[in-house]
């Protein structure tokens, strides 16, 4: 019931959306495709949900070939496209009913699977879908994608544009679904969501930069990272850029993340340099890398 992707490539006109992508998703896994807009995530989703045909390579979903067995796949996957794709002029209940009937089932029949989610939107069941908040829309869309008990769930950027509270709830829901033996492939541009997946593929420009468990990706970060802060952020950026020891220096919220070309670099070295540049309130601390640090290091 997993997913297998072998050497998939796809181009639109001159743009190479996917460039020789290969990976496996194990049955029951929560697998994340992490990358910014234009990384090729949506194209990959459409190939796997049988909506597009790849130029090269092959892929199977739950053992079925995405080109030849497209009918079988359409019966057993749930798909939530990137933008909100429900009928805005239908109520919550009508939407759900509609998707249940086209899959030849009823809400009652599969209620146990969607119960968790549906109780949260049930108070609004007579409201038109177009009038729901972002978080509610996304829960309704997920309910609709689950209504026929799919074996594999494809979620294309389900949390984009959704507030932090709803995002958190959504991920909690995914974790629970995973326990019901549903394989989940989810994409997101938010690096901080990577940690919630079993394994992730960091994607950019149609290629996979790295594929592993999130902790493993962080552990494989090749350098020591220092977070740096002084009283003047803008001058700090400029000064770190011209520092001869600098390997990378990126703004990271209220700090800068700094890595050096020397492996035995110490915080004191940097403090000394910044003092020389007349910075005040200097703060330099070694810190743990994040997925975002890995992503930037890999795509550098």
């Amino acid at each position: 019931m997993g997913i297998s992707v072998k050497h998939i490539s796809k181009s639109y006109d001159k743009v190479r959306a996917l460039d020789d992508i290969s990976f496996e998703v194990k049955p029951g896994e929560l697998f994340g495709l992490i990358g910014p807009d234009g990384a090729g995530k949506t194209t990959l989703f459409r190939i796997l949900t049988t909506l597009l045909i790849a130029d090269k390579g092959e892929a199977t979903v739950a053992g079925y070939d995405v080109v030849n067995d497209y009918k079988a796949i359409r019966n057993l996957v749930g798909y939530m496209p990137g933008r909100f794709s429900l009928y805005q002029d239908l109520t919550v209940e009508e939407n759900l009913n509609f998707f249940a009937t086209i899959f030849g089932t009823t809400i009652e029949e599969n209620y146990d699977l969607i119960k968790d989610i549906y109780v949260q939107i049930e108070p609004f069941k007579n409201r038109r879908a177009g009038k729901l908040s972002g978080g509610m829309k996304q829960k309704l869309a997920l309910s609709c994608a689950l209504i026929h008990k799919p074996k594999v769930l494809f979620l294309d950027e389900p949390t984009t544009g959704v507030d932090p509270v709803s995002r958190k709830e959504f991920w909690e829901i995914l974790k629970r679904l995973q326990q019901k033996d549903i394989t989940i492939l989810v994409s997101t541009p938010y690096m901080d969501e990577a940690a919630l997946c079993d394994r992730i593929a960091l994607m950019t420009g149609g290629q996979i930069l790295q594929l592993s468990a999130p902790e493993a990706i962080i552990a494989s970060f090749p350098k020591k990272i220092f977070k740096v802060r002084t009283a003047e952020t803008y001058r700090l950026i400029q000064d770190l850029k011209v520092f001869t020891q600098t390997h990378s220096a990126y703004p990271f919220g209220e700090y800068m993340h700094f890595t050096s070309m020397e492996s035995d670099f110490k915080a004191e070295d940097l403090i000394r340099y910044l003092k020389g540049k007349k910075h005040k309130n200097i703060e330099v601390l070694e810190t743990e890398p994040t997925i975002e640090d890995s992503f930037m290091e890999l795509s550098k």
């Binding site: 990358g35 910014p36 984009t160 803008y234 950026i237 990126y250 992503f295 795509s299």
Partner: peptide, 17 residues
């Protein structure tokens, strides 16, 4: 929103400037 991490940081550099 949705921009890759490096471009995003370049953008913040412009803002700080």
């Amino acid at each position: 929103g949705g921009v890759d991490p490096i471009t995003r940081r370049k953008f913040w550099e412009m803002i700080y400037r």
